[in-house]
């Protein structure tokens, strides 16, 4: 290898690569500090020393972030679909008189569904009511999966892709490190052998 790049603390990137981490691919509501914290965490473990190793480490961090982002999106979709299912069930299974059912549908069902999503106590109450009507939480969840199938499937495929890609990057990092190690060993051997042949002469 050529000259050693400028180095900082073990988990801080080379100064030449400051720009690489300046604008990570983050959504608007995600703090860059979270990203840098994850990067530093991986950097501390992997101890990248060369530009190539840092570039690969950045990939690893980016893909880890992608996976987290997709998982969060999947949870949001499932929660939203569950809320929709609950709302539908609250409206369709209300067992009061026709007039009361109509009032409930118009005035309270949406509020109750919202409370189901945001208030644990209310959720338990509504779950119990729906259970009595023959719709246990597992059925609600199953229906949510069915309703959001296309989106959930797309997210699952993307998560699988990113995980596979991250594994490829990990192997690449390992391979590059091995090659660097081999080259350092070869260079050391050459120096040592050179010294011995000079001494023999």
């Amino acid at each position: 290898m050529g000259r050693m790049p400028a180095k900082r603390a073990d988990n801080q990137p080379l100064t030449e690569l400051d720009w690489l981490f300046a604008e990570p691919p983050l959504l608007g509501n995600v703090s860059i500090d979270d990203y840098l914290k994850l990067r530093d965490h991986f950097a501390l473990a992997a101890k990248p020393a060369t530009l190539i190793q840092w570039m690969l480490l950045k990939d690893y961090v980016d893909l880890t972030f992608e996976i987290r982002r997709e998982r969060k999106a999947k949870v949001s979709i499932i929660e939203l679909k569950q809320k929709e299912v609950v709302l539908g069930l609250l409206k369709s299974t209300y067992d009061g008189s026709d007039a009361a059912a109509a009032v409930y549908r118009i005035c309270s069902a949406a509020d109750d569904a919202q409370k189901w999503a945001s208030d644990q106590e209310k959720r338990a109450e509504i779950d119990a009511v729906l259970m009595k009507r023959g719709h246990p939480p597992s059925a609600v969840l199953a229906q949510a999966f069915i309703d959001g199938e296309a989106q959930i499937d797309a997210i699952d495929k993307r998560i699988a892709t990113y995980e596979q890609r991250r594994m490829t990057i990990y192997r690449e990092l390992e391979r590059i490190s091995d090659r660097l190690a081999q080259r350092i060993e070869k260079a050391a051997t050459e120096i040592i052998e050179g010294e011995f042949s000079e001494a023999a002469e």
Binding site: G2, P5, E16, L17, L51
Partner: peptide
């Protein structure tokens, strides 16, 4: 340029492609 400076003897084409 950064790659070429940090890896002595590296080919320009390879650095540009990377």
């Amino acid at each position: 340029e950064t790659l070429l400076q940090s890896i002595a003897g590296a080919s320009i084409d390879a650095a540009r492609n990377a």
